[in-house]
Design a protein around this nucleic acid. Structure first.
Lengths: 134, 134
DNA sequence: GGCGATTTACTCGGATAAGCATTGTCCGAGTCAGAAGGG
DNA sequence: CCCTTCTGACTCGGACAATGCTTATCCGAGTAAATCGCC
């Protein structure tokens, strides 16, 4: 039941961009400094979000990162799934455990209930919600 | 958003014991064989559940493991928390990330909502539920 | 037959290795803006 | 004044090291039942 540090960094980087508004691009260095996290690592995360079409980036001096959409249109789910991969799958190791059909399907039921709830909750929360503490 | 393999093994071991009914103790070897998992590793998990007062164990020949309570009284939550530790805590790394108070508390809110739901769901599901596929 | 010593089969507990995902670092290449320099 | 070249600052992308958690293995110690042997 946990979310990785990288996901949190992605989310808060998004918050930072949202707070900067639709001004000119924000440099990776500035974001890293603001979050208090190593530059090279953060940039790797930002790049994943660029590839996922959530952020955009510009090169050269005066380059940097920007939100592609309105902060109210970007859900935490998009960000988290762009970084950790899809959330909804059943764990792989289940296939390697032998047990009664009943027990296994019951377990899978409970498991996917949890995931569905998490997905829907993350999908409902946007960057805008976080900026105006909710 | 995931549960470890060890937790699943603990749960299915409990299911196995429940299926055996309140007969004499079941050997670790038998459970491991039934689940198709390495003996030494499984026993380590079983021991954690013994320490958590969920299973009981007897030594010597004809020894083995048993449920301490009725299968209907043992929730998945007990088992999972005995193995992975408490579920409800916020992730530690949050303290190492600098961001606005609003954003952080919003994130924590969403996070603990997910955990509360997972806890309540796991708390409602018992070994008995899994034995009679539900 | 009875009683104690020995064997046996199991759990307990700690130590430790192997695997794997996450986190973090490094460097070369691409790119663009602005500065420098030459005509 | 204009065009070209150079330089610097930044992102991109891949490769790779370090760290930490999960999974798995190993072994000695404790324990209790069953067996064996001796009286």
């Amino acid at each position: 039941m946990k979310l990785g540090r990288a996901s949190a960094l992605g989310v808060f980087a998004g918050v930072h961009l949202a707070q900067c508004g639709p001004r000119s691009p924000v440099q990776g260095r500035e974001i890293a400094q603001s979050l208090g996290t190593p530059h090279d690592y953060l940039v790797k995360i930002l790049q994943q979000l660029v590839k996922a079409q959530i952020f955009s980036s510009e090169r050269g001096p005066a380059g940097g990162f920007q939100l592609r959409k309105d902060p109210g249109e970007i859900s935490l789910l998009e960000i988290v799934e762009a970084i950790e991969g899809p959330i909804d799958g059943l764990p792989v190791f289940l296939e390697t455990i032998q047990t009664s059909r009943h027990a296994k399907s019951g377990f899978e039921n409970t498991y996917s209930h949890m995931n569905r709830f998490a997905r829907s909750l993350l999908g409902k929360t946007t960057l805008k919600d976080l900026v105006n503490g909710r």
